[in-house]
Design a binder for these strands. Structure first.
Lengths: 223, 223
DNA sequence: TAGATTGTTAATCGATTAACAATC
DNA sequence: TAGATTGTTAATCGATTAACAATC
């Protein structure tokens, strides 16, 4: 266990590396250098070598990196071979969309169960997963090791549900509620997918680009 | 137009500030200081003052910030008052979930149309929005000013669709395809929601926390 | 061997934090 | 007025980039 404290920036680049490498693999490439990978991804070769060196020595001087080996390494660093499992809590539109079409298995996660509080949903089978009543969690999860939960309940239930999940001993929450969760247990890992934050960020850049273009055309008019 | 080049880090904190301020507003708070806001959000007061100072002087010495005014300012900086409009391209599970339950209006966006290529979906009305055939885009968008597109088509169509959207003069793409888009027009703004990257990041931290706990308990065993 | 490219150390750049005069 | 808190300048910290010896 060396690698003391890898920065969040580095971690968030790892899935992108993996994606780029899978693409190279699909194209039939055997090897890739830090500079060609950098060009593909819009990063400097320096940064790529720095990033990889946090985890080990995966390259070879004069050759570069073996695409297949490197992607295996990165997938392993990300934990895709750990056999993690998760449950979906809240089978609304987003929950159902994830159950129906997100490929959890591709990223090493097993979807073990889905819960909702609404009687009319309980018993429905979505993509092979039966929706269970949230109050039956004990018998449903009996003897199962669950690592994470997808949280996709309505905003007003978000914190209550998050804390209930934490109390179950589940270690991570993939949060789709657009709410900043307040979880009492500080060890619970929260990974947010804030649609609203993302849309507002896009909105900012959109507004900015319009302002820039306007001031450009003002300049033109003055000519 | 002062504010030259605000860093991405600052921009991505703005929606979070707005969220915190809306919460304070709902709690009935009139004023907030940078230190109390910082405590609430897990940021230093310094950073908050620095961030705001990129855009103007919104506070008052000895008092702090007026919650209502500040949230209005930030909302405006983010462009929620610009009257942006968008279309959904690809009415699969995610596209439909967004149309059905994402509150675009709350963030200043009007959902103007939805497109799909599948005949069986065309004509369906979802939450008041009729799904149109993608090939009829000309007559559907005739005379409308569309600022952005939600891209929620299958992976294999992602790049083709993205470039078609760009060719229509749409300036921003909210990308849900989990694909790193290659768009020829470099002016198109792309805002990614990469579910897979997010899940893998969570997976990393999950794996890390297990490793740490394991090494802790090893230590204990040795005692 | 010569050329290419790594892993790593040092230099630079940018972002965060601390400090404080200004002032409500 | 005295206390609180801003906006801003300076100091620190961390992340990215550049450079280069090591070596395949």
């Amino acid at each position: 266990m060396k690698q003391l404290k890898i920065s969040n920036n580095v971690i968030r680049r790892l899935p992108r590396y993996l994606r780029a490498l899978e693409e190279l693999k699909a194209e039939g490439a055997d090897r890739v250098s830090s500079s060609s990978l950098g060009e593909k991804m819009g990063l400097t070769s320096s940064q790529i070598r720095q990033d990889f060196s946090c985890f080990g020595e995966f390259g070879q001087q004069g050759y570069g990196y073996n695409v297949k080996d490197l992607s295996t390494e990165i997938a392993s660093i990300l934990g895709t071979d750990r056999g993690f499992s998760l449950v979906v809590v809240g089978v609304g539109n987003i929950g159902r969309a994830l159950i129906e079409s997100f490929c959890f298995a591709q990223y090493g996660f097993e979807l073990a169960a889905a819960f909702d509080i609404r009687e009319e949903l309980v018993g429905k089978v979505i993509n092979g997963v039966e929706v269970k009543n949230v109050y039956d969690y004990k018998q449903v999860l009996e003897g199962k090791k669950i690592d994470a939960a997808v949280l996709s309940v309505p905003k007003r239930l978000a914190n209550e549900a998050a804390n209930a999940i934490a109390d179950l001993g589940i270690k991570a929450i993939w949060n789709f509620t657009n709410v900043e969760l307040s979880i009492e247990n500080p060890n619970v890992i929260v990974e947010d997918i804030h649609f609203s934050d993302s849309l507002l960020t896009m909105s900012y850049y959109l507004a900015e680009s319009i302002d820039i273009n306007d001031s450009d055309s003002n300049k033109q008019e003055k000519m």
